[in-house]
Design a protein around this nucleic acid. Structure first.
Lengths: 209, 209
DNA sequence: AAGTAAATACCCAGAAATAGTGAGAATAAT
DNA sequence: ATTATTCTCACTATTTCTGGGTATTTACTT
């Protein structure tokens, strides 16, 4: 009997996957969580074999959850649920030793199969996912080192993404426009993007907006 | 017995919601579709009372599906499934006479209730959704008239959002950079946004990327 | 105490975007 | 066939962004 913890910020998805898994006698959904924080809390008191984890969540995303898990030394097999082939994440996931990754548009069979495999400690990455991994590794520039942004930089990214220009940001933060320039410059360089568009793109893909 | 057609680009969601609805004896999921086009095809041959429609889909989104439905004169009650409170859509949905709208993070009970209401022709909009509607109506600037973008403009938005600058876009499309300038100018004005950041933002919020 | 990271500020020069106008061709629609 | 829309191109002027530096203060680390 494989004990599963479901984590997704959408109740419908949780209910849905629960229903799917109910039909399978070898799998039992022991609990669920709507947030990453809640998932971590529940993992401390509840013994589970596999955590089925949505990657796109507000506040604390899937990757952060896994990172915390490792930090706390909680041993559990992780199967990530992704919406799209978000190539940026994939590399980080593999580095974090996540056992598996499965697209939300895969069917019931694939899901059950994946959970079974992962519960045995085996690795499962859907073809689509591994393909997109190679895609991402080609774009070394961007994902080369996991980006370390400072608080101030994140703050500025958000303001840029909300259509403010350099002067407006400077006024809002009570700092010189030169400073904002410097920050923006550093951000572009850290993210390895060419321009404002790339910056806003990053903001969206990483739930900063 | 309420006959339901499920439309979502993620098989897991379809399977999940199917499972949820199976438990309810008054609702029967007669078919499902992974794309908007497929949904339209199936609606021509299959009698359904309610179509449960995901709004975020590649290629043809939920709004376009409804528009086509109206055009073809197919009468069916529409219940929209949304991920977030995407305020921009809401106004359009109401204008299109969509019966209801429900967030994906609502539970089993709400879902069943909503389907029942909608099947009776009654209107259901979750509190969150109506709230966000009023929010959006305040921002008259942006949503004042539903934006009508041309094919070329959409093409250019996508290229801008992928970090290309004016000259690069001009080369790629074999047109003058002046033309690209003009398009960008028109786009900014149509969307009512201030700059590139707003444009990329729009692209993301409307699944153009 | 020395070293490092973060936040701050400044300068310069070139590239790119934005705003305002105007206008000719190609298509689609009626 | 006439209109309307879309797509196209051009010019000017101004603002904003981008990339190359350098440098100081503060705070935290070792």
């Amino acid at each position: 009997m494989i004990r599963v913890l479901l984590v997704d910020d959408h109740q419908v998805v949780i209910d849905g996957i629960s229903s799917i898994l109910e039909d399978d006698s070898s799998i039992k959904v022991v609990d669920s969580a709507l947030t990453g924080a809640d998932a971590l809390r529940k993992l401390e008191f509840c013994a589970v074999d596999v955590i089925l984890l949505d990657i796109n969540m507000p506040e604390m995303d899937g990757i952060e959850v896994v990172r915390q898990l490792r930090k706390k030394g909680i041993e559990v097999n992780v199967l990530i649920l992704t919406m799209h082939n978000n190539a940026q994440f994939t590399k980080q996931l593999i580095e974090l030793g996540v056992q598996g990754c499965i697209l939300k548009n895969s069917g019931k069979k694939e899901l059950v199969f994946a959970i079974n495999e992962v519960s045995q400690g085996r690795r499962i990455y859907g073809d689509d996912v591994t393909e997109s991994l190679f895609d991402s590794l080609e774009k070394t520039q961007k994902a080369v080192d996991q980006v370390q942004l400072t608080k101030r930089e994140v703050e500025i990214i958000k303001l840029i993404a909300s259509e403010l220009n350099t002067n407006e940001i400077a006024e809002k933060l009570f700092i010189s426009s030169h400073t904002v320039d410097t920050h923006r410059k550093n951000i572009l360089s850290k993210l390895g993007v060419k321009n404002l568009a790339g910056l806003v793109k990053f903001a969206y893909e990483n739930q900063l907006v």
